[in-house]
Design a binder for these strands. Structure first.
Lengths: 240, 240
DNA sequence: TTTTACCCTGTAAGATCTTACAGCTAGTTA
DNA sequence: TAACTAGCTGTAAGATCTTACAGGGTAAAA
């Protein structure tokens, strides 16, 4: 049974609970007592959707939340802009308030670990943190040794979450089917073309272009061309 | 010297050539004679920017290009929409034309391997393929064994490419500095607000909103509000 | 055969955006 | 001090988008 098989098995989960159990087992196998997966989906730019999948101590999560640590947590900031993992280290938590986060986390059994970043095609930004309470030199070394496997786990877990959670109806990535025409019209509108220009490009009447753009907008639950463009883009609906 | 150290060393490269040498060495260490990294950046949706970083045989690349294989290559399609790697396998190359790609690739020494996907914060979609000419059962197993390390390499390589290639002036991700106001205005415009509404939200005059949006557009080299919104979004300039 | 999905088009009033003109303040840097 | 950057504001004509009304077609699935 390779780690690949285990990771693959995440994709076979049907429920969030099952996925949680498997992820917990898998993390433990890899030497981490705790994990935390979080994803942000830009259904709306100003009100993004967040989903948390936690194998962290509940008390720590609550404290973290109440203290608004997410805003200054260097691992969160790192994962928001980079695609490489970050190993928990004194250099990372270097300021006064961030060092405090690290210390407090340690009290809850999150001593050593690393955070992994993964971005989806539909603009989702996700991260997975894996942590152990072990504080030895060996523990630090183990984190490094497992870096590859951990990164792989992150990818598979994200894929699984995407399938189980994010694709369900009434949830943010709920499948919105734009027709080809609608996509074409939005694409050209996004390229800055006017209705008249799009009509010429697609050999349609300007009225029809308007029509398709309206349909697309109403499918996505937005109003106006600009809103439709941004929603279609941030949800990856018209990706090349 | 762990694989991590090696991957880290990619980040220290200053030139594309240096990066190429290091990547070649690294791939070999991992048991792959060939690698191919490709990235697409949505500077424009209809005319995206492509960058290829090839450790593949030149002849194969040319043949692949001329034959337009990229359009039907199942590994490319997989990486475009998934975040998990795909191992080269008969099941993947299952149709007549795709099986042909696999066979032809084999003739150039690309027999077994896998393709890895990574998406960046700025909407770049990249993939790395690693291949070996070995055709044994052991070779297949080795691909699986190295899956984690390979995925990690993909992430580091992408980060390195981003720094060396994509961030340079005159290149697609060339740093465009939007001011906070400009970002705010674009953000709300992307949320479907009218100029008048944005003015109210930000406590500005409508004229000023127009002004900022125009400045943002001209900085990005586009014309019109819709174009500005799409460019800002697809280049990750106003990400939350 | 009915339903469903997709595609296409017209008119017209009013809202909104674009682009041209022109000018002000404040803070930082050279 | 001069030059630069960021921020802010006004007017007005013309282009473009929005939304209301209304209507037509094909093709596949139920």
């Amino acid at each position: 049974m390779t780690h690949l098989d285990l990771a693959q098995s995440l994709l076979n989960c049907d429920t969030v609970e099952e996925l949680h159990t498997k992820t917990t087992t898998l993390s433990k196998h890899m030497g981490f007592e705790h994990f935390l997966y979080a994803v942000r989906v830009n259904v709306s730019l100003t009100r993004p959707y967040h989903f948390l999948f936690s194998g962290y101590p509940k008390e720590w999560r609550e404290h973290y939340e109440l203290s608004g640590y997410a805003k200054i947590d260097p691992t969160v900031q790192h994962c928001a802009k980079a695609v490489i993992p970050v190993i928990w280290d004194r250099k990372i938590f270097n300021s006064r308030p961030t060092a405090r986060i690290r210390n407090e986390a340690g009290e809850f059994g999150l001593v050593n670990g690393a955070s992994f970043s993964v971005h989806g095609r539909q603009g989702e930004a996700a991260m997975l943190s894996l942590a152990t309470s072990r504080n030895s030199r060996q523990a630090k070394q183990d984190v490094i040794t497992m870096l590859g496997t951990s990164q792989l786990l992150t990818c598979y877990l994200h894929e699984a979450i995407q399938r189980i959670v994010l694709s369900k109806d009434s949830l943010p990535l709920k499948k919105i089917n734009l027709t080809d025409r609608e996509k074409e019209c939005i694409l050209w509108a996004a390229e800055g073309k006017t209705g008249w220009e799009i009509a010429n490009i697609l050999k349609l009447s300007e009225r029809t272009v308007t029509f398709h753009l309206q349909n697309a907008a109403s499918k996505m639950g937005v109003s106006g061309r600009q809103h439709a463009i941004s929603r279609a883009l941030s949800m990856g609906l018209i990706a090349p």
